[in-house]
Nucleic acid binder design. Structure first.
Lengths: 363, 363
DNA sequence: CAGACTCCCGGAAACGTTTACAGCAGAGCA
DNA sequence: TGCTCTGCTGTAAACGTTTCCGGGAGTCTG
């Protein structure tokens, strides 16, 4: 009824029509003034006034429909409780914000359908582009990535021929760094606590571990390998199982959450870290510095990967015709107290002494 | 040119027009079939086929403009690296997902302008509603909350008369629980590591701490109070400053991140936890169970608050005319090893505590 | 067999913007 | 004075959907 006369939107909020009517100008003029392009001083005054009086706020959806852009970028990760994604997110956010866009994060919880659904639904124009970091990649998934309606950048491993922008690291050699370091420190019974083998990172790290041991001519004792998932509780449980059946002198963990779980398991079992068992995590998140002793960890450059992914995405948004690109970030090892070289041959002090510490070295 | 004839969208993607033309039906019929409402078997077949052939995906923006809803809900928090928000987010997500919507998270980084901008811009129709958990509340902020174009629920303290849906806890009495517990365990020199006093939670916890001590007839030694921010590094640094000038037999921390920092500072200084110093954190996040010894912590029901906030929001979205409501979640204390009652009167071990070290300072 | 009822369809009008286009007034210039 | 040029303005057409509404074909009932 009054709808047409009052020129307001369905839910009673003012629209550009309301403002225009109130200012006594056309909606074109009102729109121009509101966007700061053109308009005589008098018109500008009237429109500004009218807009303020009715408390006009533009409808971003309508604007986006017209302009074909939303100014939003999404990041989809599996588990926002994992600090590695927090770090990545921060890096992405700063790049994205610099371009005047806003970053939204979606946690997929590893439910693959959820992730695909996100690509197929949410991405369908709600955002200008998205960055996804899947831990499992199915064909279905890949198909959704390839013909996504909006630009997508993948952080993580992808099939070589996938025509998708991609920033990866080499967690395989990353594991190698950890093993090299431990072997150099005189450890020989090196255990490995990994995440599921049917995930991309889980498989890569498993391969890396086996290759590294072989490279040092060490035989792999399967009792020293245990699998959980990529979170704390499972990591701890896995480490407990491992400790119950074997006597490692070092543990490599597939990420920092697992490593913290393993640390807990070790301490609870009365093992000294690093004296009895050296410990190396992976991802080098801030969590690694929050433990006592602080955790050595293989950095997979999560911030750097995030930054680069964001840049790739912005470039692709600017020019969708760009050929797919692939970037790689090299791993490095941060040595901290949990694996600092300690003289294994010294008799253990009667009173458990604090770990001799060497300052953090970033290799 | 071909635009009109080919019936495709500006960027060459198929629209409902493309599908309709290809199927030889009207766009109305095409739309109906695509939405699964009506259509003869023959029409359904033709439209489905045409849609599949051209790879049609609906433009969500256009749909939202028409339907006045996006199916998205946003959560704005200060620091996504704080596990308390992760927990809250998970709770919200499960409620939101059950309503068929998707949750997007935005980290404001505590930049107040960012938060207000989010309300003023993003919220302007990109989402059906949002939950914000501000740690500082200015008048400007409040104004933005009150006349937000979309329903908003605030998690946290608000002025009593603010007409905004609100889920709060009572962190003041929460701190009291911690102090009561420590006093009952025989501790008398109780320290407090807090976040900034110009934040809502910081102020409440400070007040709670002072009130609780007074309630037990204990005088407050100001040297036992230290302030950083709500993150790990600052918490650790603050605890180090405190330890350098005073000898607490217990520490209450304003959240778990600070508590982990304090734990690190204590261990690095050679104090035994809980023997020498008992430690209680706040928020009872999963982080509290990841430390060794595990951290006692005051639960402020973050998951419960998230759940309720999500429910309030969904109800308000369904009926925007609802009067503003306010809910409260009671705090509780989870006692773990870091403050377990230990016989304080036992003689300290002959071997002196390890040399106090000042390890790497991150802050 | 007529009338009412059901089902399906297409045209067209929304949703709230931005913007191409054309018209119009005034200023500058020959 | 007449012409062009400039700067503003309003009309209307997009953007890609959904949905109201009226019409036509078929079915059931009396």
């Amino acid at each position: 009824m009054g709808r047409k006369r009052l020129q307001e939107s369905a839910d009673g909020r003012p629209t550009v029509h309301t403002v225009a009517a109130r200012a006594g100008v056309s909606i074109a003029s009102a729109s121009r003034v509101l966007n700061g392009v053109g308009g005589s001083p008098e018109t500008i005054r009237k429109v500004r006034e009218a807009a303020a009086e009715v408390g006009y706020v533009p409808n971003a959806i309508a604007r986006s429909l017209q302009s074909q852009r939303t100014g939003l970028v999404a990041l989809a990760v599996e588990d926002i409780g994992n600090p590695v994604y927090v770090e990545m997110m921060r890096a992405i956010e700063s790049v994205v914000a610099a371009s005047g866009r806003q970053l939204l994060v979606h946690a997929t919880g590893g439910r693959i359908d959820n992730e695909t659904a996100l690509l197929r639904r949410l991405a369908h124009r709600y955002v200008d582009g998205m960055i996804v970091s899947p831990i499992r990649v199915t064909d279905d998934h890949l198909a959704a990535l390839v013909d996504s309606p909006v630009p997508v950048v993948v952080v993580g491993q992808l099939p070589a021929d996938a025509p998708v922008d991609n920033v990866r690291t080499d967690s395989r050699t990353g594991v190698g760094l950890a093993v090299d370091h431990l072997v150099a420190a005189g450890r020989r019974r090196i255990g490995f606590v990994n995440g599921p083998l049917d995930t991309v990172p889980g498989a890569a790290r498993d391969a890396g571990f086996r290759a590294a041991l072989a490279g040092h001519g060490l035989a792999l004792d399967e009792r020293l390998v245990e699998i959980g998932d990529f979170r704390y509780a499972a990591g701890r449980a896995a480490a407990e199982r491992l400790l119950a059946r074997a006597e490692p002198d070092a543990l490599v963990c597939a990420n920092d959450l697992i490593a913290v779980g393993a640390l807990h398991a070790l301490l609870a079992a009365g093992r000294r870290v690093p004296d009895d068992v050296a410990l190396v995590g992976m991802d080098d998140t801030e969590l690694a510095q929050m433990t006592f002793p602080q955790l050595s960890s293989v950095s997979l450059g999560s911030a750097e990967r995030g930054r680069r992914a964001a840049e790739l995405l912005l470039q692709r948004i600017a020019d969708p015709a760009l050929p797919p690109r692939r970037e790689q970030v090299a791993p490095s090892l941060a040595v901290r107290a949990s694996s600092a070289a300690t003289p294994l041959f010294l008799p253990a002090p009667a009173e458990p002494a604090p770990a001799p510490r060497t300052p953090e070295v970033t290799a």
